[in-house]
């Protein structure tokens, strides 16, 4: 009996988690501007419509630029932090690492408002760069978490062996460490990219008059007749996110296998 209830619970939980997301593609392909059952017919019109909205294209490009830049910077910072954390022992190490990881649990709206106040006080104008700043802040902890496990799995002797065989410390990092943590780096970039692409609150506060895709989407919700187009766009975003996260996990696992270690953690 116990087993049955546990199964019912698990199924309900999954329905609760994924039903709204399944509705997204359902209505994106539904031939009606009204979001309601019963479904009236199959159409790909909403996706065709998507290709015609210029403002949205600008938002997509803006979002892509922000996401790629964020991924690069967050991962660079993550590499430095993860290497420092695994390679050296320094006073206050745990405390510092804790502080670096904190944005993971900080309410985004707090981060967004504080950044907004600080940037305006310093006299910066809002735009893509201010969004990138905010996104790097929230993506770096994810990047560190992924890269930490990549660096942790690395035998310290490997770099020493390369130095012993005549390489400089830098070239041994490049020839040995970098290729071995590369799957972690790719995984970190993909996850940072995905987080940045989907992120709304920080972008909403800091984007100025160049909206990112989620901000643009939110603005479109005021027009009910455009809702199916928004759903179509949402469908694409969800699909892209799932693909990217799957790739990220694939690379993370490959990295763990490459270093010849057993799997410890990860996001998926």
């Amino acid at each position: 009996m116990k087993g049955i209830w546990l199964r019912v619970y698990a199924v309900l939980y999954l329905v609760f988690l994924y039903a709204p997301i399944i509705l997204l593609p359902l209505f994106a392909f539904n031939d009606s501007t009204i979001i309601a059952f019963p479904l009236t017919g199959f159409t790909t019109n909403w996706f065709v419509e998507l290709t015609k909205i210029e403002a949205m294209h600008a938002a997509v490009l803006n979002s892509l630029f922000i996401a790629i830049t964020t991924a690069v910077f967050a991962t660079l910072l993550g590499i430095c932090a993860a290497r420092a954390n695994n390679r050296y022992r320094f006073p206050g190490q745990r405390g510092i690492m804790g502080m670096v990881m904190l944005p993971l649990v900080l309410p985004e709206i707090i981060v967004a408002v504080s950044l907004l106040v600080v940037l305006l006080q310093l006299g910066f104008s809002l735009g893509s760069w201010s969004v990138i700043l905010g996104h790097v802040l929230i993506c770096t902890p994810f990047s560190i978490a992924i890269l930490n496990s990549a660096f942790q799995n690395l035998d310290r002797s490997l770099e020493e062996a390369a130095i012993d065989l005549g390489e400089t410390p830098f070239s041994s990092f490049r020839l040995i460490t970098l290729p071995l943590v590369m799957p972690g780096i790719i995984s970190s970039m993909l996850i940072s990219f995905t987080i940045s692409l989907d992120e709304f609150i920080i972008a909403f506060f800091l984007t100025g008059n160049e909206p990112t895709l989620p901000v643009y989407l939110w603005a479109q919700l005021r027009f009910p007749q455009k809702l199916p187009v928004v759903l179509a766009l949402g469908t694409l975003l969800v699909a892209l996110s799932i693909i990217l996260l799957t790739c990220a996990e694939f690379f993370r696992r490959r990295g763990v296998a490459r270093a010849g270690k057993s799997d410890t953690g990860g996001f998926l």
Binding site: D155, E160, I163, D164, L165
Partner: peptide, 20 residues
């Protein structure tokens, strides 16, 4: 003389074989 220029070579306890 840094490690990479010394006339010594080492066999590490973990062997440190480059796995890639």
């Amino acid at each position: 003389v840094p490690a990479n220029q010394r006339p010594t070579n080492m066999v590490f306890q973990s062997y440190a074989i480059f796995p890639h």
